[in-house]
Design a protein around this nucleic acid. Structure first.
Lengths: 147, 147
DNA sequence: GCCACAGTGTTGCAAACAGCAACTCAACGG
DNA sequence: CCGTTGAGTTGCTGTTTGCAACACTGTGGC
């Protein structure tokens, strides 16, 4: 589009590196809660309950994948399913107390890690990265159209 | 550790969302070259050759994982191994012509995608995201100490 | 020169992660 | 009542990853 095109290849490389690395790193940071489990619980806690379909849309995964991961979390006692009164097809997913507990511990480690990596950054820079990533992620949902 | 701490949780969530989503999206964008293959070829092309151990360090993966992925790429004819004269232990990995060809196609799609997602951004914003991510990734290597 | 040791990569095994297609069950519209 | 759509689940398969054990190369005593 404009002449910021020269930035795009570099941006792609950073996005790829981050994506491939972040998961492995998270596994090391909190071995008791896998990256997948962490991401799901984190999302459910943030939204205070969500349906499986929303998670499918959010991560662009197949519904069978989400179904299995939810089942695993439930069996591990980290999440509970609530049936919505008016509609027996959908189920509201919510982290259990134990789930919140593990999530809080994992969160603490993640925050410490990101803190460490952004040590020496100005508050504005941290904020800018968060804001720009948020915009990018939001655009992602729109572009992909993966509902 | 200043009062930008309030930004960190939000930043973590964006990083998680991006990491979990980006891979699935890349698979859809260029089905002929998996995300894993793309990341490796991209890195090899950029550095114009690298050793397996460097890739291990870069992505924080187990060396067996890299070994297998390199083997797969070689069998697919997308990469060649060169033995370094002075040292028969190491091998220099390089994308083959066919590898570069597929990489170029995948790159084109990735660039288009990122372009689309950053449509409406100012050049400075795109540049800022790239720069901040680059700094974050660079810090990652340092913090993790994963050599 | 030989032998322990460190470096580099490979392989056997097992687990987590993911997609596709076929299925069940619930809701809705005639 | 029946066809259709929506929401999840399950069988099957393939990929991605880690760990431990291995093979082979180079290096440094001795």
């Amino acid at each position: 589009m404009t002449d910021d095109d020269t930035e795009v290849p570099g941006l792609v490389r950073e996005l790829v590196t981050l994506s491939r690395r972040f998961r492995a790193n998270a596994e090391r940071l909190h071995p008791d809660l896998s990256f997948v489990d962490y991401s799901l619980l984190s999302e459910l806690a943030e939204r205070d309950g969500a349906r499986a379909g929303e998670l499918v849309g959010l991560y662009g995964l197949n519904k069978s994948t989400i179904s299995r991961q939810v089942t695993a979390l439930e069996r591990a006692g980290l999440l509970v399913r609530e049936t919505v009164p008016g509609n027996r097809r959908v189920q509201l997913l919510r982290p259990s107390d134990r789930g919140r507990e593990l999530l809080a511990r994992a969160d603490a480690r993640m925050y410490r890690e990101v803190d460490a990596r952004t040590a020496g950054w100005s508050p504005e820079e941290v904020r800018a990265l968060r804001t720009l990533l948020a915009r990018y992620n939001a655009a992602a949902s729109a572009v992909a159209g993966d509902t």
